[in-house]
Amino acid sequence: MQPAAILPPVTEADLAANQRALDREARAEDRLMFRLTVPALAIVAILMVVPIGWLLSMSFIGGDGQLGFENYALFFSEPAYVQMFVNTFAIAFAVTALCLILGYPVAYVLAILPPRWSGLLMLAVLVPFWTSGLVRTFSWLIILQRNGLVNKALVATGLVERPIPLVHNMTGTIIGMVHIMVPFLILPLYASMKTIDGNLMRAAASVGSTPTHAFLRVFLPLSMPGLVAGTIMVFVMCLGFYITPALLGGGRVKMIAQRIEESISLYPTWGPAAALAVLLLVVTALCLAASMVLVRRLSTDR
């Protein structure tokens, strides 16, 4: 009996031709997909990547148009700069530390509460997070002013004799910035705590660990990746802060972002502002790179 139809034997050439057609189709698909990303990419590249590259080059061109480190030398020669750097880093450290103290317990409770309650608590974290920073800064202006709520309470309880200056200075700036930054610490921290297996804590308790001991030896180390990522993110965001120090600092607390803005109008050339911008960018990049390395190391240790 004959088979109904005999296909011609498949040759090497057929296979190769088939492969070529497939490759061609894959390349066409890749090209089409690449074209779809072009509009988004163009907007970000032309408005952000290109000008930052240009700032980098401008920072090495001095007032006389010559190549050099003149703009960077300003960092050390001008006293206003030194004070501004000290302010920027001191505020960023203080805000980060306060965020840690306030944020860690909230993230912890979010992770251990039953879903119904944690959902409510999450809302309490998210509502201020969504609220405009400008609105919250204005709120602090009302609360912290000379005859504001806090000062009235302090005087009424006899803690201070007369109202103390809480705003238009470093104190006000830090209070306002912590308020804006705490959610940025809580959210990644909570995400990392949620993945910790509760049985580990029970296991520690069953072998005789006190709750404090179990927390310090089991829970805290396991929450480290989220803790490190959140902390560094808060620190980096603090370095570039503009609104809060500008409004709650009352012109007395200058941070790097304000100085960059002022430099543009202060100097005839872009150089000094560009040098500050490059410094901020490099510190930011270094912090974020350190964060990535640390988180990876902490996560693989397990």
């Binding site: 032309i46 408005l47 952000m48 290109v50 000008p51 930052i52 240009w54 700032l55 980096v236 965001m237 370095l239 570039g240 503009y242 972002a257 960059i260 803005e261 543009i264 872009w270 502002a273 911008a277 901020l280 960018l281 930011t284 974020l288």
Partner: peptide
């Protein structure tokens, strides 16, 4: 990840 002030200065320049 880029500080807002840098993006703003860049856009102003462009």
């Amino acid at each position: 990840a880029v500080p807002a002030i840098l993006i703003a200065v860049g856009i102003f320049f462009v």
